[in-house]
Design a protein around this nucleic acid. Structure first.
Lengths: 302, 302
DNA sequence: CATTTTTCATAAGAAAATTTTATCGCAACC
DNA sequence: GGTTGCGATAAAATTTTCTTATGAAAAATG
């Protein structure tokens, strides 16, 4: 059964339906001999007779009838393949494996997922939250389709598209609300709370203060922005958080929020994926949706 | 999606499995370009990209993965077609629509069905019990596969194969058990009970007595051998029944059973089917099973 | 950093398959 | 008994699919 063709199965179905070689051939837009030959070959491949050729009547054998049912299933399944492909033209289909860094994920994801499933109901979104190097590696390994990270990444086999920029704001205990806002240099001499090693946001903060990240520091390292804010709330220091995190993280804390003077510290957030990914166009659609989600969130918090 | 080939689907599966054009091609026993071309054509047919070709790695796209699942279903279903055909080589498969005349059916069918399902478990036997002309018609119309009738039929488009012969025996009230056994001529003058018009057994009985079947008769016509025997039991006449019916029909009646002198009245029972039926060989197998069933039954009643 | 290797895509010619046209043979129908 | 309808078969034409040869790009190697 190595040589069975879909063509043969289609012809078979037509002949079963019409019970007449000539008309079945016509329905298939071929000539009658072509049909005869293909049916004969199918029967030979199978080593069994599917049709009983009586004078003036072509009838399915018992085997033929059992066959017909299965063949129809097969043909229908093949049509289904076409449908699947067609559906993927229109929009995104299947599964999107999206990585997001931890300093973005909690604030952006709810909105992204809402918007994605509104725009592409057929899409299963699988989210991975981890730090940039891991995301990049998993992207390169093909275990992720795209990731939302801070730019630039500079990996040549990845495409980067910018989503938005976000400023960092200073979080201080409420008691210090009236104090002048320090600049980067002054922050170095304050008790500045940072995220653990590996978070890009830690490096971005340090860069603002002109501190070598490798230098030993006395500060407590928090595992999340949420933790940092709680420590500040306890009066044990100050910290920076991206403005997108402000409304969520300061809701339950009595801390003061201060913007820096221009040029404010900030970072560019973007989406990345493999250059070779043929679904680049669709990923661009996803990026656009994330962009809108970002706008919406920054609109709410301002 | 009119031009998708099973070949393409098989190649697709191989490539998905190996993730490497060269090795997949080898697995398919073709060269790498042939595979490349077919995959490309499949993708074009579908209007969608199934594989992401990265340097040193060929990976399924999200769509490709969804595809793979369906494609495997299709390929498996096609293999199933082959299995079905192969199964039909070995023995009978599917459905056997068998017609049987009423004067045979009750006595032979239980044994036939037992034996058939023992020999061919996959076979669904559908039985139709009616008189010869209807059976022949339904056979010719393709609504039956075979029929068990009294020979000869003489329909040129049907094959006949003899199964066995059976004698007719005389059934009389027990009171008449001692009387001499009449011959055909003498029967004409007795109160001979017959089946209704249309039963071949009626005609066979009349032929034995040299009676024109069209002649008006005073006798009561019974609708089954069972009925006839009951009427005899009530002392209202005598009748003939095929020996195969004896043990069943006389079990609950107090009648006497008498064999005729040679040449005993008898009939040939055979199986018939369309000459054009390509399953003739299998039907011959069925005939053989019926033959054995007949032997078994006559063995019991003797 | 240049060279070689690996790997997929493409092109051209060869082989195989499918299809069409033409024709035959059989059985039904008039 | 000729005619017609229908499927099978044969030969030729066409299309499809394959192989061989080659190209191009990225990765591995020295």
């Amino acid at each position: 059964m190595k040589n069975v063709t879909l063509k043969q199965l289609r012809y078979f179905e037509a002949l079963a339906h019409h019970g007449h070689f000539g008309r079945a051939a016509e329905a298939c837009s071929i000539t009658q001999p072509a049909l005869s030959v293909q049916i004969k070959e199918l029967e030979q491949d199978l080593g069994a007779i599917l049709f009983e050729r009586a004078a003036r009547q072509v009838r399915l054998t018992t085997l033929g009838e059992a066959f017909l049912l299965r063949v129809q299933d097969v043909l229908r399944a093949v049509e289904g393949l076409g449908d699947l492909a067609r559906a993927s033209h229109t929009g995104l289909v299947g599964r999107l494996r999206l990585g997001v860094i931890p300093t973005i994920a909690p604030y952006l994801l709810p909105t992204i997922i809402t918007r994605l499933s509104r725009a592409h109901g057929e899409l299963d979104v699988f989210v991975r939250e981890t730090m940039t190097p891991k995301l990049v590696q998993e992207l390169l390994d093909g275990r992720l389709d795209a990731a939302i990270v801070a730019l630039p990444i500079g990996e040549p086999s990845l495409v980067e598209t910018e989503l938005f920029s976000e400023n960092f704001v200073l979080i201080r205990p409420r008691a210090e609300a009236g104090n002048p806002v320090p600049n980067g240099e002054e922050l170095r001499r304050m008790r500045l709370l940072l995220l653990e090693e590996g978070h890009c946001f830690r490096d971005q903060t340090l860069a603002f203060c002109n501190i070598q990240s490798s230098l030993p520091r006395d500060g407590l390292d928090g595992s999340s922005l949420s933790t940092l804010v709680q420590i500040v709330d306890a009066g044990m220091g100050v910290t920076l958080i991206p403005e997108m995190a402000v409304s969520v993280e300061t809701r339950a804390a009595s801390v003061s929020i201060a913007r820096f003077a221009e040029p404010q510290p900030s970072r560019r957030i973007g989406m990345i994926w493999r250059k070779t990914n043929p679904l680049g166009e669709q990923l661009m659609q996803v990026a656009e949706i994330v962009r809108q989600a970002g706008r919406q969130i920054r609109g709410q918090s301002s």
